[in-house]
Every structure is written in C-alpha cells, then in structure tokens.
Simulated scan of single mutants.
Amino acid sequence: MKGQQPTLGAVLRDLRARFGWTLKEMSAKCGIPVSTLSKVEHDRLTLTYDKLQQLSQRLNIRMSDLFAETSASEEPQVTARRSIGRIEDAFRVNTPNYDYYYLCTELRRKRMIPIITRIRARTPEEFGELVRHQGEELIYVLQGRVEVHTEFYDPVVLEEGESIYIDSTMGHAYLAAEGCDEAVVLGVCSSADEGLMHSLMNLHGEAVL
C-alpha cells in the first residue's frame, strides 16, 4: 500500500541492491553474520539498537536511513533549499594554523560543509598533529601554493587552480608551501554523519571566534 512504512528488511535489501553487494559482502562490511542479515531481510528478525548503530557506522550511512524509504522508484523530494555564501556573512574561526570562514551557516543538517580557509602554518612542526574527521573533502587552491601532508602518501604541492580530494578519516594537514607566506583554499567537507559540523568545530580546540 502506498505510504506504508517499509520494514527494516526491505530497507536492507534496497541498500544491498544499490551498492550491488551480496549478503556475504554486506556481512563482511558491517560485521553482522550472513544468517542474521538473511533473517532480517525476510522480516523474521529485527536488530537491536547496538547492531543498528554498528550497521550505520560500518556502512557509513545515517541511522535515519535505516527507518526511511530508500527505493529508487520513490519520487525525490524537492526541498528548494538555497543559500548565498558571502565572506562577510561567514562564521569565522581563528586558530594558530588557519582562519576558517564557514559559509551558508543558516542551512541546518547540510550534507556538505563549504569553508574558505586561510592557511598560515608553513612546517609540519608548526602545524602539529595531523587532523582526522569523518567523511571526505575536496580542497581547491584559490591563492598561493599549498603543501598537502597525509598519513599514507608523500607530501604534494598544489598550485593555484589545482585541487585534491581525500578521505578525511586519514590524517592530513594543509601548509603554506615554500616561498608562500599564506594560502587561501576553498574546502568542501561531506559526510553521511549528521554531526559533521560539530566534529569539525571540535577540531579547532581553543579557537578564537
């Protein structure tokens, strides 16, 4: 019947279909036995809150997605959300390494967090420990040159107009490259975690707002 709330089993079947996973592959990714997943998909078993949380974290999806219609046949909802990002209206955070300008802050529960960042740190020692947070991010160099340090790769230098896309859970740091006192970048952070903005703000430590 149209409008009927789908079961957890139907939601899991839809997720598997979207990602093209077998039950065995989904089991390996989420750490829940194949037999349990099969019973859930056939509506013969449900999952405890702890298991739902494990499923959400391991598959990098929101908890709310496990209780909502995800079928591709459903008509997409048009929210008509819109926000103009102006530097003078940005929420500014100053830290020893960076000046952050958070754009479009009036929009809540964004899937993407746009940030203009002025980079001042010039050496790994000056920067300190690499940072990590949930999701992925794109950094595009607007002014200057940027030296990107990551946990698993050699440093790379980006010139104006160049960009890098990384897994944000990997330790990373952005520095003003040699011969450049500071650089300016546009960053876009994205995550299925609805608490992304909170996670980013916690990275600032003793920030000066």
Score class of each variant (00 low, 15 high):
residue 172 H to V: 02
residue 145 R to W: 08
residue 139 I to V: 09
residue 35 S to T: 07
residue 54 Q to A: 13
residue 141 V to Y: 03
residue 102 Y to H: 00
residue 195 G to D: 09
residue 23 L to E: 01
residue 20 G to H: 11
residue 19 F to S: 12
residue 95 T to D: 06
residue 99 D to F: 06
residue 197 M to N: 02
residue 175 L to M: 04
residue 14 D to G: 14
residue 203 L to C: 02
residue 87 I to Q: 14
residue 77 Q to F: 14
residue 153 Y to R: 03
residue 115 I to T: 15
residue 165 Y to M: 02
residue 13 R to D: 01
residue 185 V to M: 03
residue 112 M to C: 03
residue 118 R to D: 12
residue 176 A to V: 07
residue 33 P to T: 09
residue 84 I to N: 08
residue 191 S to E: 04
residue 112 M to H: 05
residue 113 I to K: 01
residue 37 L to I: 08
residue 203 L to W: 06
residue 1 M to H: 15
residue 53 Q to F: 05
residue 67 F to P: 00
residue 195 G to I: 01
residue 97 N to T: 03
residue 72 A to E: 11
residue 49 Y to K: 08
residue 163 S to A: 15
residue 134 Q to A: 14
residue 156 V to H: 01
residue 111 R to V: 01
residue 50 D to V: 10
residue 19 F to T: 12
residue 65 D to A: 13
residue 190 S to A: 09
residue 170 M to W: 03
residue 147 E to S: 11
residue 209 L to G: 08
residue 92 R to K: 14
residue 47 L to S: 10
residue 166 I to S: 09
residue 173 A to C: 07
residue 106 E to Y: 10
residue 72 A to H: 06
residue 101 Y to S: 07
residue 105 T to D: 00
residue 150 T to N: 08
residue 120 R to I: 06
residue 102 Y to P: 00
residue 15 L to K: 10
residue 69 E to I: 10
residue 81 R to H: 11
residue 73 S to C: 02
residue 66 L to W: 07
residue 148 V to Q: 01
residue 181 D to C: 09
residue 85 G to S: 13
residue 105 T to S: 12
residue 117 T to I: 11
residue 44 R to G: 15
residue 77 Q to T: 12
